[in-house]
Design a binder for these strands. Structure first.
Lengths: 142, 142
DNA sequence: CAGAATCCCTTCAGATACTG
DNA sequence: CAGTATCTGAAGGGATTCTG
């Protein structure tokens, strides 16, 4: 090991913590793992992407439900998890019919570099083993 | 809010695909989700970090097992998944006692920008809701 | 030593039905 | 409209045991 603290350093810091130490936050206690676990759940990324993509911000429950084709309970769970993680802000208006709007927070938008890096990684490696290609790397996006 | 196609663009591209369209690779069919799902599994990030951190590369099964405190079957599963995803290279030497070495591939090392961005995000937002802080943002790492 | 196989348990996620 | 409740099925993950 001679160059084991340059590129892997960020990973090291991002993964710091003690496994099975007594915490019960996510599944291991690692911050990175927590985030991955959260985003790794069903429809998590599509939902978040949909919310983030909406610059206007306001998204109704049924809008997300029909647009993303997600079961209502699952959508509720994801939304709650996101709200709990501070990625989504929930605003309920006390009127009839009831209206609840979900909006991606600044925290969620700031995740963009991560997705950008991820996109760059996928674009660079093609990701053949995972089955799906990124989409259109032929288009001059960035 | 009228900047709905700048920062969220990468997320859009990273999430492209059709939900429940007919694919059955990971769980949704989104490349990003696949990666998150893979890394979101138990001990996935610690294992990968341990492998990436070892610049020399060669890690024995029992080394990982004892160092990470992971059940053998789980470790085997993660290692297989990583190998299948091209993140880890498995080399088995036909000798007695049998020796198998696992090494992080270039593809895995190139994930560093993602982790770096993630670390930066955590460092920026503190990640209070997810329970665990990044580690030492007091130290001048980057 | 490395890991495959087995059993058991927990969690997740979808469908459905019902309420404010 | 926006959920909550309940149920069922399916993976995930751990411990243990056994084999090459």
């Amino acid at each position: 090991m001679s160059d084991a603290d340059t590129d892997a350093d960020a990973v090291e810091r991002a993964v710091e913590g003690c496994p099975a130490g007594g915490n019960d936050e996510g599944r291991d206690g690692h911050p990175a793992t927590d985030l991955f676990t959260l985003l790794g759940r069903a429809h998590a990324v599509p939902i978040l992407a949909h919310l983030v993509h909406g610059g206007s911000g306001a998204w109704r429950f049924s809008e997300l439900e029909s647009a993303l084709d997600v079961a209502p309970n699952t959508l509720t769970t994801r939304l709650q998890e996101f709200a709990e993680a501070g990625l989504v802000e929930r605003r309920s208006y006390d009127e009839i019919p009831p209206r609840v709007e979900y909006q991606a927070t600044d925290r969620a938008r700031d995740l963009d570099p991560v997705f950008r890096a991820l996109h760059d990684w996928m674009d660079d490696h093609g990701e053949p083993a995972l089955g799906v290609v990124v989409g259109d790397e032929s288009a001059s996006d960035d």
